[in-house]
Design a protein around this nucleic acid. Sequence first.
DNA 1: ACTCTGGGTCAAGACGCT
DNA 2: TGACCCAGAGT
DNA 3: AGCGTCC
Length: 334
Amino acid sequence: MGIKGLTKLLNDEAPGCIKEAELSSYTGRKVAIDASMALYQFIIAIRSGSEGFAAQVLTNEQGEITSHIQGIFNRTIRMLTNGIKPVYVFDGKPPTLKSGELAKRMARRQEAQSKLEAAESVEDKEKYGKRLTRVTRKHSEDAMKLLRLMGVPVVQAPCEAEAQCAELARAGKVWATGTEDMDALCFRTPKLLRRLTFGAANKQPVMEVDYQKAIDGLGLTYEQFVDLCILCGCDYTDTIKGIGPKTALKLVRTHGSIANVVRSLDKKKYQVPAGWIKGSNPAPSAKPDEATEGEDGLEGEGASNKENSEKNESAPPESDEKKKAEDAEKADDA
DNA sequence: ACTCTGGGTCAAGACGCT
DNA sequence: TGACCCAGAGT
DNA sequence: AGCGTCC
């Protein structure tokens, strides 16, 4: 996923929305985390790197992967001891809008598959092996079980995890979304935290993005911001050749909406992909049942964040969210 | 000359001992 | 996937 | 900081 070049664009055009802070300044906060994303990173990264052989994931006696368990266990412990309260959100059914992108991924997957079979060198084998890595249903269930046993709240999202994270944040159930993926901003998470890790070799500070300051800084409404993201290139649509972040921002500012932008484009110069955005913008509303209500202005989260520390009521936030989402169908990979 | 896009690359966790 | 670098196209 | 280990 991800919006191509959004970080850089925000840095250039709305610098006020990004700030860096020490981990300690987040103690006491609840943070929603996209679990599938984390699991994927762990499975990619946690390997026994024997020299001369392709690095292997950790497994149990049955040959089942355990890297994700190592990873999520350590990280969660680390967060808890640092006073951060994670809420892990698991993906549900992928939105149908995304099917195009998913098909592309499948194609890339198969390409990697065949390249792996043809691979000679250790490096190639490793490279293509990693490219084949996926988070399966089983991995998610392992993680859920572990987290429940640890007493850490788990949420099953009806659809995309990032969307549910943002929704939890908007509802004040958590203070922020912790992710590397800027998509969460499109779902209006009031705060987005990047690099929320606690490695002993503490590399870089936490990066905090404020949603309200971001759209204010860009001078856009929420709808325009979504339009901008679509133009920049996201998971839901193809892009228009020749239009990147900079010009996309310029165009949206000038024309007000994506529909107007498309209308005013010189079609000879820019090829608009077939079947592109019709009239109204299809905001990636990823919560079929949940997010549609409560569309009204939910002010005050972004600006007056300091007071929110008291928002952490003693009860874990999972109870009602979970119920609603429990029956949602899950994506599974064959 | 400058700005931007696009296509390539690479790396991707966390611990504890030294 | 995202960050980065470099090449090339466009302004 | 670097490096081996985690299964």
